[in-house]
């Protein structure tokens, strides 16, 4: 494995002396921004869609909205993220004359995409909250929306926190496709280092380690949040 030592030396040379770490930090920043902004947009869209989908259905408007929402969900769940990125970046935005760089487009597409998934997660969360909570809120004269926001959704979020964590982890890992639209993420950074040194083994191992560390940190943070949200629970 003397060969391997040489490879490590070569990697360290590029990483430290030739400022490879700057590229990596930039990539890390983009990866995190895309995943975090995507998650936030996703939670907003997902909550909105989930709320529409649990509306009572005897009036026309909720039924129409419900139809639009299920179309949206099926559309974004039915196509791969890469395809959505390519379509927005190379087809829709040029036609509409919108100029956005790769990172911005990625944030948006990640948000739209995870919104479709989170809407289903959120819907199951809302349905897991006892119907009596909604009735309790309505009985004191609060509107459907107010009861939803103040009573039902906070309890739903608590129930789905582990699944939301999964979604966030999936988003972090899926950012590795954003170089398709020219965004410089973690994967892109290590690919650049690899190309410069004609040596990919060490960069790819280091890249995998960074992904794992990111995911471990997120899992830990979610466990902390679960504990602090669990203070109204009987168990624990």
């Amino acid at each position: 494995m003397g060969n391997f030592d040489k490879k490590i030396d070569r990697f360290l040379e590029i990483f430290i002396e030739q400022n490879g770490y700057v590229t990596v930090l930039e990539g890390l920043k983009n990866t995190l921004t895309i995943a975090i902004v995507g998650l936030i947009i996703g939670i907003l869209i997902g909550t909105l869609i989930a709320t529409v989908r649990v509306l009572p259905k005897y009036k026309l408007l909720p039924r129409v909205l419900n139809g639009i929402c299920s179309f949206y969900v099926e559309l974004f769940r039915g196509t791969p993220m890469v395809v959505q990125l390519l379509i927005f970046y190379y087809v829709l935005f040029p036609i509409m004359g919108i100029k956005m760089d790769g990172v911005e487009v990625s944030m948006m597409v990640f948000g739209l995409n995870s919104g479709a998934y989170i809407s289903e997660i959120m819907r199951s969360g809302i349905q897991s909250v006892d119907i009596g909570q909604m009735e309790g809120g309505r009985s004191v004269g609060l509107s459907f929306g107010t009861t939803m926001m103040k009573i039902v959704i906070p309890q739903a979020v608590k129930n789905i926190l582990p699944t939301l964590g999964n979604e966030f982890i999936a988003l972090i890992k899926e950012t590795s496709v954003v170089s398709f639209v020219g965004a410089a993420d973690l994967y892109k950074a290590f690919n650049v280092i690899g190309s410069n040194s004609y040596e990919f083994m060490v960069p790819y191992i280091v890249m995998a380690l960074i992904y794992i560390v990111l995911v471990l940190i997120i899992s830990f943070a979610i466990r902390l949040m679960e504990r602090s949200l669990g203070k109204s629970d009987r168990r624990n």
Binding site: D130, G132, Q133, G136, G137, Q155
Partner: peptide
């Protein structure tokens, strides 16, 4: 209500 329906998160 029969089952109280107090807000569990409050």
């Amino acid at each position: 209500f029969q089952h109280f329906n107090l807000f569990n998160n409050k």
